[in-house]
Design a protein around this nucleic acid. Sequence first.
RNA 1: GGAGCCGUAGUUCAGUUUGGUUAGAACGCUUGACUGUCACUCAAGAGGUCGCGAGUUCGAGUCUCGUCGGUUCCGCCA
Length: 592
Amino acid sequence: MNYNKRTHTCGDLRLSNLNNEVTLNGWVAKKRDLGGLIFIDLRDRYGVTQLKITPDKKQLHDIASKLGLEFVISSKGMVIKRESINPNIPTGEIEIDVNELQILNESLPTPFIVEDDVKASEELRFQYRYLDLRRQKMAQNLITRNKVFQTVHKFFEKEGFIEIETPILMKSTPEGARDYLVPSRIHKGKFFALPQSPQTYKQILMVAGMDKYVQICKCFRDEDLRADRQPEFTQIDLEMSFVDQDDVFKVTENLMYNIWKDASGIEIQTPFPKYTYDDCIKYFGTDKPDLRVKGEIKLHHLNKIFTNSEFAPFKDALTNNGSISGISVKDIQISRKVIDELTEFVKKSGFGGLGYFKFSNNEFSGPLAKFLSDTEKESLIGEFELNSDSTVFILSGDYKKVCETLGSLRLKIAETFQLINESDDKFLWVTDFPLFAFDEEEGRYVGEHHVFTSPKPEFEHLLDSDKKEEILSIRANCYDLVLNGQELASGSIRIHNYEMQKKVFNLIGLSDEEARQKFGFILDAFRYGAPPHGGIAPGLDRIVARLCGVKDIREVIAFPKSTSTASLMDESPSIVSDKQLKELSIKITSEK
RNA sequence: GGAGCCGUAGUUCAGUUUGGUUAGAACGCUUGACUGUCACUCAAGAGGUCGCGAGUUCGAGUCUCGUCGGUUCCGCCA
């Protein structure tokens, strides 16, 4: 097809181009047919430019009046000044007086109108993703994503890292998320797994002396989805030799600084504050606290204050080695209705009710007030620094459960009263996670992070302990980067010692034999001069989502999956032919 | 695996509470009129398996059960 190729994009032209002869190629975003005059808004990913077609050019006018939305056209003409300017778009002072007009392709009426304030459901947007991506907002998101890619490459190049690709087809390993499996045709009955992360490869690259490795890589986890979780997602995976936690922090902070600066011009504050895991639970009831909550609502632990309490639930908590804890909300009138809602909220977590009292003009009121002694009141005023109208919510019971529930209550209150400054970004490091948790269902220890995470040196000797509380007290050399209540990156200083790695495998219930079968390659590698090493892996989708001001990472992924892990556009996953299955020696035993 | 919300015209929704005549609106689409619009305006028109399947009922978009899809949360995600 012969046609006039564009000389400019639809976002280029200004008054300075006046009287230039130009050609624009793009999509018809809007047509305003006044009978004589016809105006066309022509769109490409750079912007929108108005075309004017006058009725004296009969042939042109006939073509123009036939145009439908999303037709692709080529239009040649003169840049002229508009009689009435449109201040809402950058090209609003000019228009093209069209002399040539060619339809390059027609479009069926689209299932939804391509416009920034899209009305269509996500279902339709996913199904016709190519239409959705024509929207300026979506194009911007992908452009921001690209910006982050470029910054990452540039930053690590400057820092002396080597980008190395690792296999997509790899060995399936136990522990962690479910693997996506790929059957092998050659090795019948055997499977590859898609990487949950390139963890073992990057450690082996350290053994290989690669020293500073980075890769923007796809990771795959066959688990249920969330707004911030897709079955395949992208990580900025990095690993370094001869480093400690602070070295990893420094690189990551600099990386984040550069990303934020390049992508949105914001200079974030580094270094980021550090909290231990135990303190996070203690003060925020979660290992990924949102520090943007106004009024600095924190958890307070009140066991000491209520040592002599006669209030039955408090007495119970104390005798059962539990906790009495609370949060205070200042200078906000909380209605009975909201308190009822909050009560329902904590009941879902298994609490009988939500205790609270109000403090106003030095007076205590509310259901709990009558159970408070004067000494207790005095202590509570000190503990919560009560000096203005406040409401204090109190839960009692198992320490961890109390903390977690108060933590979610804190967020619920923040949401209800809009106590979060959405434009703010609050980074923090969380350190000193437990190395192990005890899985009651499986009756064994499981890695809290992953199985290659090293214990902090002062806890190493406890790997030999047979006491449960000692094993669970071991803190790990691992760390999370948290942004606005969301885990943004996770990493650790790894084990690089054969014997220690075996001990950890044994503790999580892998016999030497099993460990050899599943992880023999990395155990072997550790015996040939593995250097001390560690790393981290920031989640790229979440970073880009934050930079684009969206909560849902699907908004920054070109072709995402729906909540049930399906691609609505190409209708995958799909059944395959019997021939394909036969080649793989696979038999389907049940179908939905 | 569990819980909540949603599913009605091409699209976004109203109608479902309390079952009852011919299921409405806006945008889009078609036709016509219109020379400064930018949410163009005006007139006329086409367009419906009320997600699907059972059940209750004289009668179901509306009630019940199941199912499918979307979405949010819990579990899960080392």
